[in-house]
Design a protein around this nucleic acid. Structure first.
Length: 250
DNA sequence: CAACCGTGGCT
DNA sequence: TAGCCAAGGTT
C-alpha cells in the first residue's frame, strides 16, 4: 500500500484491510476482485492484485507466514528491492536496506550535496547506501533515516533548522543548491491511466457484473475507453462475464 | 532504461 | 492553477 502512496492516505485502508484479512490465508480465501474492491481509491490497483497473489503464495508455500529472507520475499509478486528490505527491517528487525524516496533524498543531500536523487536507483547507489549503514544497527538506522527524510528532509520545504545532522550536510553547506529535477510525471488529466481508473471505479462500486453501456458512460472517448479496457483485462483487473458483461476477477 | 501504472493534497 | 510529489514494481 505504501508504494508511491503517502503514509497518511494508507493508514485507514491498512487498518480496515487487516481487520478483514488478518492473515495471508484469509485474503487468499477470497476472490482477487474483492481485494481490488477493498483497495478503493488508493491508486495503482495492480498492487491489490499482486498483494492477493502474494498472500496466496505465502499461505501455500510459507505456512501462512510472510518470509523473512531476501530471496523468498523478492520472489513474491509486487515485492521489489524496497519492499523486501522494508519487510526485513521493519517487520523482522534485520539490518536491511530499504532505499525508498526518503532515504535516497537524505543521502543525496547529506552525503553528495545534491538537491534530490537522480532517476532510477543504480547499483552504485545501493552499494553506497549499504556501505554507510552501520553493521550492528538492526533496523534502527534504516528507520531513523527514513523518518528523517519523511518528516524533516522533505522534498519541498526541508526543515534544516531542526535537522539533527545539519552540521555535516553537504547540501546545506553548499547553500541548498536547486538543480534541475529528474523525470517529470506524465500528465494525468485525460490520460489512459485516468480512463482505466474511471472504468475500474464503475466495477468497484457495482455489486456484480456491469454492462458495456455502463462502462461507456464512464469515459467519453470510445477509442481510449477500448484501449483502457483492453489494458485492464490484460492486467487481470477486469474479466469478461456472461452475456457480454464485465466484472472484477473471481 | 524509459515508460507505464492511480489518486489526491498541497502550493 | 497547473504542476509537484508521494515508504515502487514491472515490462
Amino acid at each position: 500500500m505504501l508504494q508511491q502512496t503517502p503514509v497518511d492516505r494508507v493508514l485507514p485502508h491498512w487498518s480496515t484491510w487487516l481487520a478483514r484479512w488478518p492473515a495471508p490465508s484469509a485474503l487468499a480465501g477470497e476472490a482477487p476482485g474483492e481485494a481490488i474492491r477493498a483497495w478503493g481509491r488508493l491508486g495503482y490497483p495492480r498492487r491489490a492484485l499482486r498483494l492477493h497473489e502474494a498472500a496466496t503464495r505465502i499461505a501455500r508455500d510459507h505456512a501462512d507466514l510472510v518470509p523473512a529472507d531476501e530471496g523468498s520475499l523478492r520472489a513474491l509478486p509486487g515485492v521489489g528491492d524496497y519492499t523486501a528490505g522494508a519487510v526485513r527491517a521493519f517487520a523482522y528487525g534485520q539490518r536491511a536496506l530499504a532505499l525508498d524516496t526518503n532515504v535516497r533524498r537524505v543521502i543525496a543531500r547529506h552525503d553528495h550535496g545534491l538537491p534530490f536523487p537522480e532517476g532510477a536507483v543504480t547499483r552504485a547507489e545501493s552499494t553506497y547506501a549499504d556501505s554507510i549503514q552501520p553493521q550492528r544497527t538492526g533496523a534502527a538506522w534504516m528507520a531513523a533515516v527514513m523518518e528523517l527524510g519523511a518528516l524533516v528532509c522533505t522534498a519541498r520545504q526541508p526543515a534544516c533548522e531542526r535537522c539533527p545532522i545539519a552540521a555535516s550536510c553537504r547540501w546545506l553547506a553548499l547553500g541548498r543548491p536547486e538543480g534541475t529535477p529528474p523525470r517529470r510525471q506524465a500528465r494525468y488529466a485525460g490520460s489512459d491511466r485516468q480512463a482505466r481508473g474511471a472504468l475500474l471505479a464503475v466495477l468497484r462500486e457495482a455489486g456484480g457484473p456491469v454492462s458495456q453501456r455502463q462502462l461507456d458512460a464512464a469515459w467519453p472517448d470510445a477509442r481510449q475507453r477500448a484501449r483502457a479496457l483492453d489494458g485492464l483485462v490484460a492486467d487481470g483487473l477486469v474479466a469478461p462475464a456472461s452475456r457480454g458483461r464485465w466484472a472484477l476477477p473471481d
